[in-house]
């Protein structure tokens, strides 16, 4: 499944880029992320618990940041495996500066497998959009909070 979209962040490009590389920030913004541990440069191990409606599932996974081009763009690879299925997402994040603000554009591909792929086709699109939205909403809060005097 292709995903793409853009979100505005109340932060300059350089700071937005750094926020997006900060494991603590990522962990606090990724919906359900319980743990994000750096295991190598640009590679993190992740534990997350997805809770949506009655669905809940634990995922163990990896987050990798590749092709860094600060403060313009980087590639984000997220992989997760759990009892209810597995997913792999790969996307290019591009940051367009706009003074105090910036816009984060993402363009990528998500592959979903296992039970969620077999029985949840109807809901994968709207659910992933919701997750991305929650991520950026939280990220905005973080960016705003950090920039507050």
């Amino acid at each position: 499944m292709k995903i793409h979209g853009s979100h505005a962040l109340p932060a300059g490009a350089a700071r937005a880029y750094n926020l997006l590389q900060d494991p603590e920030v990522l962990a606090s913004c990724m919906p359900g992320c319980e743990k994000l541990v750096k295991v190598a440069d640009g590679t993190y191990e992740m534990k997350m618990k997805m809770v949506l409606a009655a669905v809940s599932g634990q995922f163990d996974g990896k987050v990798r940041i590749t092709d860094p081009d600060p403060p313009h763009s980087f590639k984000l690879v997220v992989e997760g495996t759990g009892r209810i299925g597995f997913m792999k997402g790969e996307g290019l994040l591009r940051i367009t500066p706009g003074g105090e603000q910036c816009t984060v554009q993402y363009d990528g591909d998500v592959h979903v497998g296992g039970t969620i792929a077999a029985v949840g086709q109807r809901l994968i699109d709207s659910t992933s959009k919701l997750m991305i939205k929650r991520f950026f909403d939280k990220l905005c809060e973080r960016a705003a909070a950090a920039s507050a005097p």
Partner: peptide, 20 residues
């Protein structure tokens, strides 16, 4: 987990997407 008619919850439990 609260259940009313169960028409969404029970199928999800049977598929083990939900496990209250």
């Amino acid at each position: 987990k609260v259940m009313a008619g169960g028409m969404s919850l029970i199928p999800m439990m049977k598929l083990r997407l939900a496990a209250p």
